[in-house]
Amino acid sequence: MLARPLKWKGIKKMARKTKAEAAATRDSILDAAEKLFAEQGVSRTTLQHIASAAGVTRGAIYWHFLDKGALFNAMFDRAKMPMDEAMQVLDNSRDVRDPLQCLRDDMMTVLRIVKEDEKARRVFEIATLKTEFIDEVDSVRARRRESIGLWQERMEGHLKQAQEKGLLRAGVSTVAAAQGGWIMVDGLIRNWIFEPTMFGLLELGGTVIDTYLNGLRS
């Protein structure tokens, strides 16, 4: 009578181990894909390249993912763009006596994450520089558009607070200023990723952001 419970315990333990091993294999495939997509682009990376880098067979990839498009989208589902990560770490309860200083902190946080977080930087690089937006990976374009939209809303919120406090120069459009601010940050990141030795991202970024904000102050 005691044998059955012990047998079922063993089966459950094996099932848990198998499930954990499958999850580990899936993660190793996604890790390999992420690195290869960043190094050589999405279109030039084949499933065989990914399988070899992950140390698995192509069959193992197909067991987890329908095709390269499904793998690509799964990689982004688990990843965080620098803007997403910044919004999670920033404290919304900060002192807002100077909303423009809060805006500066936000913009510098994005740059700092790009510089210090290799995974966030790699995801940004793939999404902006290494992807041809064909139908099978077009969901990434939609996600990036949503992420940028949320970030610009946050920036515009700081600018509207500054406007209400009389800190913003007369005639400034908060919508245009928010869009321009993001375009500036996006350009800094793109150029730095393309050639990191060209300039210091935080050093030059801080100078450029200060110049931008000084132009907005009343």
Rank of each mutant, 00 (worst) to 15 (best):
M81Q: 08
D84G: 05
E85S: 06
E85Q: 07
Q88V: 07
V89H: 05
R94F: 07
R94M: 10
V96A: 05
P99L: 01
C102A: 02
C102L: 03
L103D: 00
L103Y: 03
D106C: 04
R112A: 06
R112P: 01
R112C: 01
V114N: 01
D117Y: 09
D117W: 09
D117T: 08
E118L: 06
K119T: 04
A120S: 12
A120D: 08
R121E: 14
R122I: 02
V123T: 03
V123A: 00
V123I: 10
I126Y: 11
A127M: 07
A127T: 02
L129I: 05
K130H: 12
K130W: 11
T131D: 07
E132M: 11
I134M: 09
D135V: 09
D135R: 11
E136D: 08
D138E: 12
S139C: 13
R141Q: 10
R141F: 03
A142Y: 01
R144V: 09
R145V: 10
G149Q: 09
G149F: 08
W151K: 06
Q152Y: 07
R154E: 08
E156L: 04
H158P: 03
L159D: 01
Q161K: 15
K165T: 14
L168F: 14
L168G: 15
R169L: 14
S173I: 14
T174G: 14
V175G: 14
V175S: 15
V175L: 14
V175H: 15
A178T: 14
Q179N: 15
G180E: 04
M184F: 08
G187Q: 06
G187L: 09
G187T: 07
